[in-house]
Each structure stands twice: as structure tokens, then as C-alpha cells.
Design a protein around this nucleic acid. Structure first.
Length: 493
RNA sequence: GCCGGCGUAGCUCAGUGGUAGAGCAAGGCUUUCAUAAGGCCGUGGUCAGAGGUUCGAGUCCUCUCGUCGGCACCA
């Protein structure tokens, strides 16, 4: 029976259009999902959107449309993003889905209550009249709301709290022991530091008059479930937690990997595990924490006007080229940088002159002289080169070093290019046709292995290489090639 | 303020106490199968700075500087 593998991405907040950072997270998770499918695992890969909250309600009001229409429209953009980047998610969860998501939230809330971890408490907050909402100390400048230049009122209201403080030590221990692994050194340090200091109990609901656009607290419609117990629950509601059919939940939970950004670490490495502990559910095994993408060394921001639109990038260069840049140039768990110059440099050097050109020279030369089907062949030396690439590749993947896995593949491409040159392959059809055929068979084996390893990263390219070779990559050990010239994989720009 | 990451070739980075590395870019030579593509070979370094530990420090310790970030119930 295949091993189950459950991987999630953070659900995106839909108050604005998707940018390149959203795409980055999906692409990283997609590589892991595809990699584990290739290993033969039974993969379930989740993506989705977080659609409740005051910000959405306000943005919809500004736009002058119904909030449900507003979030539906924006969610569609995120679904287009997933399609454009060829993301292989098995399901897309929406927190506004009353059939799938809400029952999970209700079940979670009741589980927390049952453990005695939900209690009523007065919440004291800074209320800004201009915002019509609570603000934080961060929003203040000289004691006044930075935006509205007014002193906030201190308002007290009663709502439900969750006993987060009760679980911080236990979670700290589990992260220290590696039972819950936080991938990304900076992220691990940060969360351990936070946990060592201990965390306070946290507000888990808001009065419905302040927060209407959300899920009502079970048996108390005067309160709306606050973001934690709404958004975070998506990871289990999506697979049936709280529904009448919990088979999928039993099978896939706990998540093997949860992919998140460094900005939401605290919620996933503290609040979420605490909720799971309280509900007596197992904790996710790995939190993979990625960094942010800067643009030319600067933070991406609307006010600077440097936000990169992932759709126009794909339209210009193609899905796989953008995936390649994100996975090769951005360090997996650190901040990275994007510029169009760097992008084109990578494109030309690695894609056009690398995998594209190598594929073209092998397939064209082979197809010109060999029409029939022929078997794959590997000399001892080639076998060794492929074996080394595989070993480096898998080792890199186990450590989530996507960039290094790609380097390993590119060393194999380089091996193939050298092979063509050193054997003067283009002279052989005249000089030694038998040797030519065996060399082509050998180079096709190299190419097919490249396509196989490349599939999680550049699925379209992998499929096109396989098509030109006339094989399916997954049929390794029984490859019989029949070459067919095709279009350039990555035309020179 | 408290805490953390980072600082190594023009750029992106690897480097586990033992002769400073890779890829890209730039330069020279070379090939013509291939997308003006490929291959080969140099060049390129005060490892941010200072001090310390050590037979020996890019690596460990202390301090300084630069830079990015986290925390003070925003998500």
C-alpha cells in the first residue's frame, strides 16, 4: 500500500490580486507534491482561500459590491493563478464554503470547548473611529492613529478566549525534539524564542456587530469566530473533519508538510498546534517556511509600484520558465530577489542554451538518421553520471533544496553536451553508423532521465521532451525511443 | 529596547577547525550536430572590520560596522 502524503499551502487572503509571492509558495508546494507522486506516494495536495474578515468586508464596501461577490471574484483570480502555474492541487478550499469548511470550524470549536480551553474574558483594545475597527500599537504614531491622526479609544468588550498559554511548553518540546520539524533555520530560531517566552491566551471571537462577515460561534450568534479558528481549520475541514464522512481525514491527517510564509509562522507553529493538541489531534510533521521575493532588492509594495504580476510574466515567457526562475534563483527558505534582467539571464543560460539546446541537438541529429524505434542504452560511464545526478537530486529534495536539485539535473545536461562534443557525434553517421546509433541511444537515455527528474519542476518541459523521445518518462527500464523533432523548448530571447 | 538572519569573486551563492570553491557574467582558444547554440582554458578574493582561542580560523569566542527581519495580541 502506498504511503500517504498530505501537503498544504497557506490559504490566501483575497482582498487583493495575486502577486508573484503567492505563485512562489504554490510552486514550491507543487514540486513537493509532484516529487512524492513520482516516488509512488498517495498524495493529497491542498490550496485555497481565506475569505472572511473585516478587511474583505471593507474592501467590498469601497468597491460598492456585495462582499460575497467580491470574494468570489477575487478567489477566481487565485484559481486562475493555480491553473496558469500548472499547480497540481487535488482540492481547493474556500472558507466561505458552508458545506465543507463551516462544519469543520464548528467541530473544532466544540472540541476546544470540551477540553475546557475556551472561556469568556473582557478584551481591551484600541478602537479607532476612523478605521471603525480595533487597531494595534503598531498603527500608532505619537499615541495617535497614523492614518486618521486621532487618538484611539480604549474599548472593552467581552469575547471568547483560547488557552494558548497552556500549550506553549509542550509545543516548544515537540519542535526542539524534531517531532514537529520547522524547516528554515531562521524560522526555527524565531519560533523557539517566542515559545520559550511563552504566549498569552488569545482572543478567539469578536462580537458579531464588529465582525459580521464570518462564521458564527456555535450556540452564540452574538459572536463571530475570529480568524484563527476559522482560517487554520481549513487544513482539516478540506479533508472532511467535522463532516459525516471522516474517512479521508483519518487517512491523510496529520499533514506531512505544511508550506507557509515566514509572516504566518507564529500562527502555524504555535496557535495551530495548540488547537490540535486541545482537540486531541495529531500535529503536522513538517512546517516548511519560505521567505519573500524582493524586486531589485526592494520589498514588493503597491506604493512603490513594483508589484510583479505573475500572469503577464507567464504570458511573456511561459509557465515553466517562471517556475524555473522561482525554484532555481530564490533560496527555498530565505528571501530572494527578482529582476527581469536576472530572469532573462537565467532563461538564456539555463533554459535556451541548456536544456533546450541539448534536447534539440540530440533529437534533431538522431531523427535525421534513425527512423525506427530503438532501445535505451547506458554505458558504464553514462550510468555513473545518471546515478550521481539521481543521488544528488534526491539528497537535495530530502533537504528541501530545490535549487540544488536543479543544479544536479543541469550537471547531467552538461555531461550530455560534453558527450556530444567529445564523440564528434555529427561525424559518426558517415564514419561509424553503428557507433552513432549506440551513442544516440545513450544520449536519449540521458535526456529521458533528465525529463524524469525534471517533471516535478518543469512538468510541461518534461512532457515535451518525452514526446520528442517517443516515451513516457515513468516507464523507466523499458524505454524504447522513436524520435520526433519538435518545437524549441525555450526559444532564444 | 530585546532577539535573530545575513555580510565569501562583478552577480547569485556553497563552504562540516586543515592548500579559498561552483554557476552566471566578462576574457582567450576551439567546434559546426544544435535555438548566433556546444566544448576547453585563464582571469577574478584584505572571506565586512578589529581583537582573542588554537600548531592552524571563512569556520569557534568577544566587540564594532553595515543590512534585512521578528517581538510590543495586524493578518
Amino acid at each position: 500500500m502506498p504511503k500517504k502524503f498530505y501537503i498544504t499551502t497557506a490559504i490566501d487572503y483575497v482582498n487583493g490580486p495575486p502577486h508573484i509571492g503567492h505563485a512562489f509558495e504554490k510552486v514550491q508546494a507543487d514540486v513537493l507534491a509532484r516529487y512524492h507522486r513520482a516516488l509512488g506516494d498517495d498524495v493529497f495536495f491542498l490550496a485555497g482561500t481565506d475569505e472572511h474578515g473585516v478587511k474583505n468586508a471593507r474592501a467590498a464596501a469601497v468597491a460598492g459590491i456585495e462582499v460575497s461577490d467580491f470574494v468570489a471574484k477575487n478567489t477566481a483570480r487565485f484559481q486562475e493563478l493555480i491553473k496558469a502555474f500548472n499547480i497540481s492541487n487535488d482540492y481547493f478550499i474556500r472558507t466561505t464554503d458552508k458545506k465543507v469548511h463551516w462544519p469543520g470550524v464548528f467541530a473544532m470549536w466544540k472540541a476546544l470547548e470540551k477540553s475546557g480551553d475556551i472561556y469568556r474574558k473582557k478584551y481591551k483594545g484600541l478602537y479607532c473611529v476612523g478605521h471603525e475597527a480595533f487597531i494595534t500599537k503598531k498603527d500608532l504614531k505619537d499615541g495617535k492613529c497614523e492614518l486618521h491622526k486621532k487618538e484611539p479609544e480604549v474599548i472593552e468588550e467581552e469575547n471568547y478566549f483560547f488557552r494558548l498559554s497552556k500549550y506553549t511548553k509542550v509545543i516548544q518540546g515537540k519542535i526542539e525534539s524534531g517531532e514537529v520539524r520547522v524547516v528554515g533555520e531562521a524560522a526555527q530560531n524565531e519560533i523557539l524564542h517566542l515559545l520559550r517566552e511563552g504566549l498569552d491566551d488569545i482572543s478567539f471571537s469578536r462580537p458579531s456587530k464588529d465582525l459580521k462577515w464570518g462564521i458564527p460561534v456555535p450556540d452564540d450568534p452574538s459572536q463571530t469566530v475570529y480568524v484563527w479558528c476559522d482560517a487554520l481549520v481549513n487544513y482539516i475541514s478540506a479533508i472532511g473533519y467535522g463532516s459525516s464522512d471522516v474517512l479521508k481525514f483519518k487517512k491523510y491527517w496529520p499533514a506531512d508538510i505544511q508550506v507557509i510564509g515566514k509572516d504566518i509562522l507564529r500562527f502555524h507553529a504555535a496557535i495551530w498546534p495548540a488547537m490540535l493538541l486541545s482537540a486531541e489531534l495529531p500535529l503536522p510533521k513538517i512546517l516548511f517556511v519560505h521567505g519573500f521575493i524582493n524586486i531589485g532588492g526592494e520589498k514588493m509594495s503597491k506604493s512603490i509600484g513594483n508589484v510583479i504580476d505573475p500572469f503577464s510574466l507567464i504570458e511573456k515567457y511561459g509557465c515553466d520558465a517562471v517556475r524555473y526562475y522561482l525554484l532555481r534563483e530564490i533560496p527555498p527558505t530565505n528571501d530572494g530577489d527578482f529582476t527581469e534582467e536576472k530572469f532573462e539571464e537565467r532563461y538564456r543560460a539555463d533554459l535556451a542554451r541548456g536544456v533546450g539546446n541539448f534536447t534539440a541537438r540530440v533529437v534533431n541529429l538522431g531523427a535525421r538518421h534513425i527512423e525506427n524505434e530503438f532501445f535505451s542504452y547506458e554505458s558504464a560511464e553514462t550510468k555513473k553520471a545518471i546515478g550521481r545526478a539521481e543521488k544528488d537530486y534526491h539528497q537535495a529534495m530530502e533537504n528541501f533544496r530545490f535549487n540544488e536539485a536543479l543544479e544536479a539535473i543541469w550537471r547531467l545536461i552538461s555531461y550530455g553536451d560534453k558527450f556530444v562534443d567529445s564523440s564528434k557525434l555529427w561525424e559518426l553517421p558517415e564514419k561509424d553508423p553503428e557507433k552513432f546509433k549506440s551513442h544516440i541511444a545513450e544520449l536519449c537515455a540521458v535526456l529521458a532521465n533528465i525529463a524524469l527528474l525534471l517533471e516535478p519542476f518543469l512538468p510541461e518541459t518534461s512532457a515535451e521532451v518525452a514526446r520528442q523521445l517517443g516515451v513516457s518518462v515513468e516507464d523507466k527500464n523499458s524505454w524504447r525511443f522513436r524520435l520526433e523533432r519538435g518545437k524549441s523548448l525555450f526559444p532564444m530571447i
